[in-house]
Amino acid sequence: MSSQVPTPEALRQAATRLLAALAAHPDPEYRLAVLKRVARRLGEDGYPTFLRVLNVIAESDDAAAQRLVADTFGVALRRMDLPGGALSSWGAARLPEGGSPLAASAFSGRFFGAAPRRSLGPVEYLTVWHLQRTQRQELGAPVFRRAMSQLISLFNRSDEARSLYPQKLAADAQNELEGGYTRATRERLGALAAAWSSGQSPEQVADAVLASGAPLDPRAWVVHDL
């Protein structure tokens, strides 16, 4: 993603276009293809923009639009084919040594070019972004909580997504996927899945990630907004 953050108006327009494209096709498989195409066209660096668009839809008063998006994610979960974004594996990205301020070039493709990356769905992406060192600067806890609770609220509009997504996260929490998740992250994904499947509120589900496991050392991170 470019350094320029999309304006609220640009995000609303993008959300409107996405909803129009989804509503124009009754075939759920085609809708999933549309959703994946949008995420893919934004590119790896632009996946946070995709999450912002989902958050705009989650914040709206249009329950029908929310169900349309959530149902499409339900299809994706049934197929195990979520529109994803890539983050570097937890052991791959190292910050430069020394106490001097970090230059923008320190986070260039040259620095992280060799870091293996894996594709993550929206909930997993936010969780890893908040908890682990990746090619991105860390996502702060307040922003994580707001964005995560909005996503959970959105996905809860679909019975299928509300049922299948926690199941997927619980399975992820039981498997060490090629270094993609640290042990602490898997524990927190498990806590998130348990809270979500038990019917807790979206805010409580997000809090389950923040409350479980050992506290993070803030000195090790550069905090970044979504």
Rank of each mutant, 00 (worst) to 15 (best):
125 Y>L: 06
221 W>S: 14
34 V>A: 13
124 E>Q: 11
189 L>E: 00
46 G>D: 02
77 L>A: 15
58 A>F: 05
177 L>M: 07
91 G>T: 09
64 A>W: 01
143 V>W: 12
25 H>L: 15
145 R>V: 08
115 A>M: 11
79 R>P: 03
156 N>S: 12
216 L>M: 11
76 A>M: 07
63 A>G: 04
130 H>M: 08
18 L>N: 06
193 A>D: 02
15 A>G: 05
73 F>L: 09
172 D>P: 00
213 G>R: 06
32 L>H: 05
112 F>Y: 12
167 Q>E: 13
198 S>V: 03
48 P>H: 02
27 D>F: 02
185 T>Q: 00
208 A>D: 01
137 Q>I: 07
189 L>W: 00
199 G>V: 03
222 V>T: 12
211 A>C: 06
99 G>F: 15
148 M>N: 07
65 A>L: 06
121 G>P: 04
66 Q>M: 08
52 R>S: 10
112 F>C: 05
17 R>G: 15
182 T>N: 11
18 L>R: 13
149 S>T: 08
212 S>G: 10
36 K>Q: 13
29 E>R: 10
78 R>E: 08
177 L>P: 00
138 E>T: 14
25 H>R: 14
225 D>F: 09
57 I>Y: 03
83 P>L: 02
194 A>M: 10
77 L>Q: 11
76 A>K: 10
37 R>F: 07
199 G>Y: 02
201 S>T: 10
206 A>F: 03
214 A>D: 09
34 V>N: 07
178 E>V: 00
137 Q>F: 12
133 R>H: 08
2 S>C: 13
43 G>Y: 04
96 P>W: 01
158 S>L: 06
2 S>F: 14
142 P>T: 03
130 H>R: 14
96 P>Y: 01
67 R>M: 13
162 R>I: 05
16 T>S: 11
95 L>S: 15
26 P>D: 07
184 A>H: 12
80 M>T: 14
12 R>A: 15
136 R>Q: 12
165 Y>H: 11
180 G>K: 00
148 M>A: 13
51 L>R: 10
206 A>V: 06
218 P>F: 02
8 P>F: 07
59 E>S: 14
110 R>Y: 09
122 P>W: 00
134 T>F: 05
164 L>G: 01
65 A>T: 03
181 Y>D: 02
